[in-house]
Amino acid sequence: MASLLQPKLPVINMDDLKPGTESWISTCNKVTRALEEYGCFMAVYESVSKELKKDFFDSLETLFKLPVETKMKNTSDKPFHGYMGPIPIRPLYQSMGIDQATSFDDVEHFANLMWPSGNQHFSKTIHSYASLVSELENMVRRMVFQSYVVEKHYESFNDSMTYHLKVMKYSAAKPDETNLGAATHTDKSFITILGQNQVNGLEVLIGDDKWATVEFHPLSFVVLATDPFMAWSNGRVKSPRHRVIMNGQEDRYSAVLFSYKKGIIQIPEELVDQEHPSKFKPFDHYKFLDFFSKDEIYLDEKAIKLFCGV
C-alpha cells in the first residue's frame, strides 16, 4: 500500500560549525548525503536573524511596488540577471537581479537606479542579507569538497566564485488565472540558496513522482544543488526538479542567492575512475547559461547533458 505521508526534505542545522570539529565532520556527511539523495535540504541558519529577515522582505515589498518603468532599469548583459515581468504563460511572476550582491557598492548602485535620491536602508539590508547567505553557500560547498576529499581544489575554485541575488514576487492567483508560479525546472547556477517570506509555494520532486511541498522552518533556507554542480560531481550530486504553485490569497516574496563560477568547471580527477567514468566534459559556466538562454526547451538537466555531456 502506498504511503500517504507527505515527503519532506532533510533538515540540517548549519549554525555554530567550525571546520575540523566533530560537529563539522558529522554535518559534512549529512550535507553530502542529502545532496546525493535529494539534491537539496532545509538548512536551519540563525545567522540571518528574525529582524534582518523581516527588514529584508519588507524591503522587497517596497521594491516591487515601484513603477514598471523604474524596475525595467534593472538590466544586464547576462541571461536572466535583469528585470523579468509577468508574461501570459507566467502571469504571477516577476523578478529583479542584483549582481555581486555581496559588494555594498554594487547593491548601492542598484538602489540608486531604483531610487535616484538613494535608499541607504535598502542597501544595508540587502547587502547584509546577501553577505550572510553567501557564507552559508560557501560552507555547503566546502563541506562537499571535504567529503569528496578534493579540498585541495577548494581555494582556487572559491576565488573564482561570483554571487547573484535574484529577488522575486509571486502574486496570488486570481480566480481566472493559473496558480503556476514557476514551471518545473532545475537550476543553472552552481549552488542555490533560497529564502522566502511566510507564504509557501515551493515544491520539490522527490524521486520520480512525489512532490514535496516545502514547509519552511523559522530562520531556514532551502539549499538546492544544480545542473553545473551535478556535472562537477560527475553525477554524484542530484539536480532536483522544482516548481512554484501558488495557493491562497497572499503574495509570495522569495530570494535566491545563485553562485556562479567564472571560467571553466571540470570534474576533479579524484572523482573519475574505472567505476565512475567521466560523464561531462569541462565547460564554461557562463557559456552554458548563454546556451540555455537561447533555447529553454529543456528546463531540466537535459540542457547540460546536451551542452557538455560525454
Score class of each variant (00 low, 15 high):
residue 1 M to C: 02
residue 9 L to I: 07
residue 11 V to P: 06
residue 18 K to M: 12
residue 18 K to Q: 15
residue 20 G to H: 08
residue 21 T to D: 11
residue 23 S to F: 13
residue 24 W to I: 07
residue 27 T to F: 08
residue 30 K to A: 14
residue 35 L to R: 04
residue 38 Y to I: 07
residue 41 F to S: 06
residue 42 M to C: 11
residue 45 Y to W: 12
residue 48 V to I: 15
residue 48 V to F: 08
residue 49 S to G: 14
residue 49 S to R: 13
residue 50 K to N: 13
residue 50 K to F: 05
residue 51 E to P: 10
residue 51 E to G: 13
residue 52 L to C: 11
residue 55 D to P: 08
residue 60 L to M: 15
residue 63 L to Y: 08
residue 65 K to G: 14
residue 65 K to H: 15
residue 72 M to P: 05
residue 73 K to H: 13
residue 77 D to T: 15
residue 78 K to E: 00
residue 80 F to V: 02
residue 81 H to E: 03
residue 82 G to C: 07
residue 83 Y to P: 14
residue 83 Y to C: 14
residue 84 M to D: 06
residue 86 P to H: 12
residue 90 R to M: 14
residue 91 P to H: 09
residue 93 Y to G: 15
residue 97 G to M: 04
residue 100 Q to G: 09
residue 102 T to Q: 10
residue 103 S to Q: 15
residue 109 H to T: 15
residue 117 S to G: 10
residue 117 S to I: 06
residue 120 Q to N: 11
residue 120 Q to V: 10
residue 121 H to Q: 15
residue 123 S to K: 11
residue 126 I to E: 08
residue 126 I to R: 09
residue 129 Y to K: 05
residue 136 L to H: 06
residue 141 R to T: 12
residue 145 F to D: 03
residue 150 V to F: 05
residue 151 E to N: 13
residue 153 H to I: 03
residue 153 H to L: 13
residue 161 M to A: 05
residue 161 M to N: 12
residue 168 M to G: 06
residue 173 A to L: 11
residue 174 K to R: 15
residue 175 P to C: 08
residue 185 H to C: 03
residue 185 H to V: 01
residue 185 H to N: 00
residue 191 I to D: 08
residue 194 L to M: 11
residue 196 Q to D: 12
residue 201 G to Q: 05
residue 203 E to G: 05
residue 203 E to D: 12
residue 204 V to I: 06
residue 205 L to V: 03
residue 206 I to V: 14
residue 207 G to H: 03
residue 209 D to N: 14
residue 209 D to Q: 08
residue 210 K to E: 12
residue 211 W to Y: 04
residue 214 V to E: 06
residue 217 H to D: 13
residue 218 P to F: 09
residue 226 T to N: 00
residue 229 F to Y: 13
residue 231 A to Y: 01
residue 231 A to K: 01
residue 234 N to P: 05
residue 236 R to E: 07
residue 237 V to C: 05
residue 238 K to Y: 00
residue 239 S to N: 03
residue 241 R to N: 02
residue 242 H to F: 04
residue 243 R to F: 03
residue 245 I to W: 01
residue 253 Y to W: 15
residue 253 Y to I: 10
residue 254 S to Y: 06
residue 255 A to Y: 03
residue 255 A to D: 09
residue 256 V to R: 03
residue 256 V to G: 05
residue 256 V to K: 02
residue 258 F to N: 06
residue 260 Y to R: 02
residue 265 I to T: 00
residue 266 Q to S: 13
residue 269 E to D: 07
residue 274 Q to N: 10
residue 274 Q to D: 14
residue 274 Q to R: 11
residue 275 E to C: 04
residue 279 K to C: 02
residue 280 F to S: 01
residue 281 K to L: 07
residue 285 H to C: 03
residue 288 F to I: 00
residue 291 F to M: 05
residue 292 F to M: 01
residue 293 S to F: 02
residue 298 Y to M: 01
residue 299 L to Q: 00
residue 300 D to P: 01
residue 306 L to A: 02
residue 310 V to I: 09
